[in-house]
Design a protein around this nucleic acid. Structure first.
Lengths: 239, 239
DNA sequence: TGTCTGAACCAATTCAAGATTGGTCAAACC
DNA sequence: GGTTTGACCAATCTTGAATTGGTTCAGACA
């Protein structure tokens, strides 16, 4: 902003002068070559020699352009045109960077939202399928079977939202959940008691969806997951 | 199932016999060592020598255990205990099963929720980064640059939520969005006018996050995306 | 005195070459 | 016939050297 045209206004400002000079020179060099985005520029040492400036000055000019978002740098990688590529932590490796608490928190955020969408968009066919799933949870002879049925119920709710993209996101979340809580499986011998909290909660969720009670569906799903969370933490405690 | 105890019932079945023998031997070896999940087993050649069986027989036994999900193998990597790392295939092909409207609807659901989490969990460092991103959108010289900065802003909000899983889901959603709206890019010559609706909306979102106004952050993000949606539909109309 | 330069050094990253590993097949062998 | 053995393949890991942005500091220079 200041000092770039200091040779015009008579006052001498050597620091800003030199920086401004290499900056305009670098800008000109970039414009002349017109690199496509994500092109790797020469290393600082080379580029300094190419432009005939010191490395320090070049670095200041590069820092300015980097702040402007016209290029980005990284140790060991180099200097690249365009703005920094966002690093996508693929869902394939997220399971090692997250933890059960975070998974639960995310479920508490996403699933009530899915339930609301289901209440808004579910067809009668969807609702029949939901009822059948609930029956399956009641009939489960082992915890293992119960969890399979419970899993399917939650997925059918996501299906009932009628939003395939939302369903895909739910599947992704679910895959992470399974990977993270792997090994927390319950014993295979006994079965969930008929008084298990989830049974009544499931019923209330489906009921709200059937009645097109959007707020209610979201609320009941939230309460259900909170109950599941509480149950999980109790199971995790030493006894 | 059959032939594993053929030495009992008199009939001779050398193939199943040998396979079953190495299978039980391998099972015993695994049980004896009691490896924790995701442990790398010795290479097939070594393990064959350890167990004193041929590599072919060992491979058949390994294949059985792999089918049972007790271990998994990969060329160049090795053989590991536990079940294979999760792979989310659904998101890879969802971009051909969805459409821009569904993507927009899903953004309208997810991103306000992310903004709320950001308002709850953002650190001052996060907020500084958000402010810088907003500045970048103002300084954009082309629509292309603006969209890059806008993209980064939305992602930084997801980062500010402090929930890595939520961030991963956002990235997935974003990847789908880019794949679906590819080719709807604007001209590269002109730039967003200073009166562009998003500028004020972005400011309001960041402001709400900074003030820890959870409801406000969600509401402003929702309104912002509705405005973007309206703008998209107008642009999509023939003129 | 104060600035700038160049060289040296550091940690992160890339690159290339060799070693490993699961998968496959055909000849040898019983 | 069926099994074993050895060789080969492509994918992957491993290792070490080279490269790169970031930093420091002595010394040249004005």
């Amino acid at each position: 902003m200041h000092g770039q045209f200091s040779d015009i206004d008579g006052k001498h400002d050597p620091a800003a002068d030199a920086n401004g000079a290499t900056l305009v020179q670098l800008r000109a060099w970039l414009t002349r070559h017109d690199f496509p985005p994500d092109t790797k520029l020469p290393a600082e040492r080379e580029l300094a020699e190419i432009l005939g400036v010191s490395r320090g000055d070049l670095r200041k000019a590069l820092a300015t352009l980097e702040a402007e978002g016209q290029l980005w740098r990284h140790v060991g990688k180099g200097t690249f045109t365009g703005s920094r590529a966002i690093e996508v932590m693929s869902l394939a490796e997220i399971d090692r960077q997250t933890n059960p608490a975070e998974v639960m928190r995310t479920r508490l955020l996403i699933e009530p939202l899915i339930a609301r969408e289901a209440a808004l968009n579910a067809t009668s066919v969807d609702i029949d399928a939901l009822r059948r799933c609930v029956n399956r949870t009641h009939q489960a002879a082992t915890w293992r079977q119960y969890e399979t049925a419970d899993n399917e119920l939650h997925r059918r709710i996501a299906e009932a939202s009628g939003n395939r993209l939302l369903l895909a996101l739910f599947d992704a979340l679910n895959a992470v959940r399974r990977a993270v809580v792997w090994g927390m499986l319950r014993t295979n011998t006994d079965r969930p008691p008929e008084t298990h909290h989830s049974f009544a909660e499931h019923d209330r969720i489906i009921e709200a969806i059937e009645k097109r009670d959007i707020e209610g569906a979201g609320r009941e799903m939230y309460l259900h997951l909170r109950a599941v969370e509480r149950n999980l933490m109790e199971r995790g405690l030493p006894r």
